[in-house]
Amino acid sequence: MIAKRVGGALLTLFLLSLVVFAMSLLMGGDAAEAMLGQNATPEALAGLRAAMHLDQPSWQRYLGWLGGLLRGDLGVSLITKLPVSTLLAPRLLASLQLAGLTAAVSVPLALFLGILAAVRRGSLLDRVISMATIGVVSVPEFVIATLMVLIFAVRLHWLPALSSSRDFSSLHDVVRVFTMPVICLACVVMAQMIRMTRAAVCDALDSSYVEAARLKGVPPRRLVLGHALPNAIGPIVNAVALSLSVLLGGVIVIEVIFNYPGVARLMVDAVSTRDLPLIQTVAMIFSAAYLMLVTSADIVAILCNPRLRHR
């Protein structure tokens, strides 16, 4: 069963490589012309095209690209002439730091709030949480970010408006760089996670077995932690995975606003310069990350469920 999930994910990954390659074909244009400029001689252009395999039919280029990808050869950036891997490594690290910090803050908090809202269903607390999450879900992330900049950077001068610094010599620096991007991203991610966690726990609490446990005299805390939660784990893990995949999209806007030197920022620049190898690689990384999240959520759900485990 798990093998089936992993196999399915690999198939999707393969299909994805087709989609990503097709997208880059869409970008069209002539990279060779873009590199050499208007005044290049036809001979030079042809030579460069051959060197870049641009003269080959697209399916050959696809196979060449895919082969390179599998060998770990990501190609060379058209603009900077540097290997893509060299360009990517520090950016990837930065993005992972941002995403990791966000996840570390938002997952426990969101689960706590989601479960709390479900347990106190209908209470004032539940309604406040529900209103707040609707509010945050409904507002674009750039609005949240700009509002925060307005308040904390422009008005209060507590934090810098930009997070481009890579100088982490003291804890103070780390806090200054990460606080605002992390809070913005966490807001977006948590709203989703809270709503889905609440729904999953509510479903479990409505079940006959929780009623039966109540009628056994099981105290409320044990009812939630011992009976409802084990059944909600599958949907909750799924919610976490889906919410963290939202992070993959949200990170683009946040990195642009705060001028944070991550992968997404690189991607936006690559699109404007039509730097194909870079775009293809980043797109693959993001999509693969999404697949990994969703597939591992599936696997955790299977492992947690005795009905699926004991076949």
Binding site: S208, Y209, E211, A212, H227, P230, N231, C304, P306, R307
Partner: peptide, 14 residues
């Protein structure tokens, strides 16, 4: 209490 459907009243995870 003994419920009508024990299949639903037993927690499937435990």
């Amino acid at each position: 209490y003994v419920a009508q459907s024990a299949a639903a009243a037993f927690n499937p995870m435990l």
